[in-house]
Amino acid sequence: MRIWGMMLLVGASALATGATAPERGYGEADFTKVAKFDAHVHANVNDPAFLEVARRDRFELLAINVDYPDFPPVPLQATIAHAMRASDPKHLQFATTFSMKGFGTPDWTERTIRAIDREVAKGAVAVKIWKNIGMVEKDAQGKRVFIDDPRFDGVMAHLEQRGIPLIAHQAEPKNCWLPLDQMTTENDRSYFRAHPEYYMYLHPEEPSYEALIAARDRFVAKHPKLAFDGAHMGSLEWSVDELARFLDQHPRAVVDLAARMSNLQAQSTADLDRVRNFFVKYQDRILYGTDLTDSPPDPAARAQNPPATSDFPAEADRVWRADWRYLATPLSQRVDAINADAKGLALPRGVIDKIYYKNARRFFSRVR
């Protein structure tokens, strides 16, 4: 009776002060019990084993086609996406892309719109544009093409009209413009050391990080009705404060976490509460994603970031479980990319449910 009376007193005190018990989080054992959505994978192989591990781990997938020279040609990517979606439409959706070939010619806009509509008719739920816009592509006059170029306006108006989301990979991690000894993650340091052609710090003649981000921000402001997904944390992975400013300025935009978890962990090892509070505040604007890439082996292909693996389904399972441990639980784990142990954020269940599932299901269910 004495213990029960004490419990009543504690409960009454909490009610009197307006205090509420903290929401209970998930544990590692909940990983396969919770519906999840990986909003950023590249399935360039029709691999039933990948779908099987996704089903076992309770993941739905968004396979993103992209005009990336180390991937199979875009028409082949599309064929694979169609086949995988047909085999399991419950667990796999796909995003299409478009070619920059002939950009600026009189029929480019209409031709591109027709190509997008054909893929939407086959099930595409979004369109992806890659960093080649801003970092590679030039027009017929040899001028660099940025995302805010008005010659994209007709295509973007069509996406707005049909409710088709745009996934935009613009720029690179800010580390790409920093000296090696100032980079914040080892995976970026090793990648850019091995690939100087992609390392913008060595190419000051190319557009700066700030110029690319400014063009992206002008684009989002110019198209306020567009459902915009900033891939890879909107290339603001280096600062949750900067990313918060972007989300505040563009209230319809969302971002995904693909291939930037170590950048978050670098920040949370220094200030866990800052990162955790960011997730809680912007819980409706964040999509879980990995950038897991299943491509056919090609010894001649340039190494990728993230790298290819000989056992892709096992790698997918490992990555998904490690991310769950970091986001959903308070447990620590070794993260080689930051040469440190990263403590988990232990986000509340309601926040996890949105980031891992509800946000993506809502965002990619817009197409009219």
Rank of each mutant, 00 (worst) to 15 (best):
H250E: 05
A43N: 12
V220Y: 07
H223Y: 08
T112P: 00
Y288P: 10
Q267Y: 08
C176M: 05
P106M: 08
D323M: 10
G234C: 04
P75A: 03
D256H: 10
R56L: 00
R321A: 12
S365R: 13
G154Q: 03
A14G: 10
A81C: 01
R55M: 01
S239Y: 14
Y282K: 03
L345H: 13
R366E: 03
K36G: 06
T109W: 09
E28Y: 15
I164H: 13
A35V: 07
D181A: 03
L347C: 11
D311S: 13
R144N: 08
P297A: 15
Q249K: 15
R111S: 10
A86L: 00
N132C: 10
G11M: 00
A308R: 15
S208A: 09
F279W: 14
V41F: 15
R24F: 12
T96R: 02
R58L: 05
R302S: 09
T184F: 00
Q182C: 07
A35P: 02
P179W: 12
R118E: 01
D67E: 13
R325M: 05
T105Q: 14
V280T: 15
L272F: 12
V120D: 03
P179Q: 07
V335L: 05
T109Y: 14
Y209S: 02
A115H: 13
F152S: 04
F71A: 09
D30S: 12
D273R: 11
E119G: 05
D107T: 15
V41S: 11
T96M: 01
L166A: 02
K128A: 01
E205T: 09
A259V: 02
S268I: 07
V255L: 00
Q161A: 12
V280S: 07
F192Y: 09
N65I: 02
R114N: 08
R118G: 03
Q161L: 04
S208F: 14
V125E: 02
P75W: 08
D70G: 15
M84I: 01
A259G: 00
Q265D: 02
I147L: 10
Q77L: 07
L212E: 02
R245W: 12
K358Q: 12
D241V: 11
V335M: 05
T290A: 09
S295G: 13
